[in-house]
Design a protein around this nucleic acid. Structure first.
Lengths: 147, 147
DNA sequence: CTTGTTAGTTAAGTGGACTAAACTATATGC
DNA sequence: GCATATAGTTTAGTCCACTTAACTAACAAG
């Protein structure tokens, strides 16, 4: 058991505090919309990666095509998703957020943003500046790691 | 629709990147252990807040006492939780992580820490220092907000 | 001691996510 | 053109979280 670096320590401490709180908000919001976690996660995925096919969903969530198809179907029927034929391959479908779907995702993210804003609004200007710098570095690094 | 401050922008961008990635790791790990999300979340809660009673669980996850009792029972039978009588109130139970439960939680957190370490290991010493400072500020702020 | 409340359990039943298997329809390679 | 692979759907059935309701046991107050 090697001693963690100061950087690791700070990263982990922040992550633990953040995850715990954020998960609560996430599940709570999903429940309040009447969607299941699985369904809401699909909307989030679509928001993040943009339109995609059914198989992308099943791969991402490690479920069968059948399961993905069923979940997506519910979301289509609830009006959060649009399922169109892919013009370049007529077997495939093109899934994308509907207007309502995008609005729901936005709303969900706002709820989770609120806590972070709350967190920082009483910090000094200097502290805020440090945080902006640091998070921008991290966000850029995250984009690189994820390809 | 007011324009977000630079701080909000940085917070939100980081949060979105982080959440997306972190959720994937979280669900993946829970699945790999054979535990359901619900069950794993209870372990995480116990880790975070320490020993507590059954009603604390049902309140936290917004489920009935009956549901909590059943979930906890499975975790006890799997050897991840200990359920003892509360000496100060013999109606109540005292739930705590078993040795194996604590180990499992630790393991889950390590998996999620790994990505963050990956993220930062190629940054310059100066950048790392900035991140440590900023995250420590945020972590402290988070503790305050959560009382 | 009795009446009422609180913590938790048990049992029966509902609903949703999930799978395997059989199917349709389109694409691809020889 | 024919065989094979690929994208997705449908169906039947399983598992698990969750609820309601009925219950036990311990506490609290008169």
């Amino acid at each position: 058991m090697t001693k963690p670096s100061p950087l690791s320590h700070s990263l982990h401490a922040w992550m633990d505090a953040f995850m715990h709180r954020s998960m609560r908000g996430w599940t709570h919001f999903a429940k309040s919309t009447g969607l299941s976690m699985s369904q809401f996660s699909i909307l989030m995925q679509l928001h993040h990666k943009g339109p995609c096919g059914m198989s992308d969903i099943s791969e991402r969530f490690d479920i069968t095509n059948a399961a993905a198809s069923q979940l997506v179907d519910k979301l289509v029927q609830s009006g959060y998703l649009e399922r169109a034929e892919d013009p370049s391959d007529r077997r495939a479908k093109l899934l994308k957020l509907s207007h309502n779907g995008a609005k729901l995702v936005e709303q969900g993210m706002n709820e989770r943003h609120r806590w972070m804003d709350e967190l920082t609004k009483n910090l000094s200007a200097d502290e805020q500046k440090k945080i902006i710098e640091a998070l921008d570095i991290l966000t850029k690094a995250a984009k690189n790691v994820d390809k």
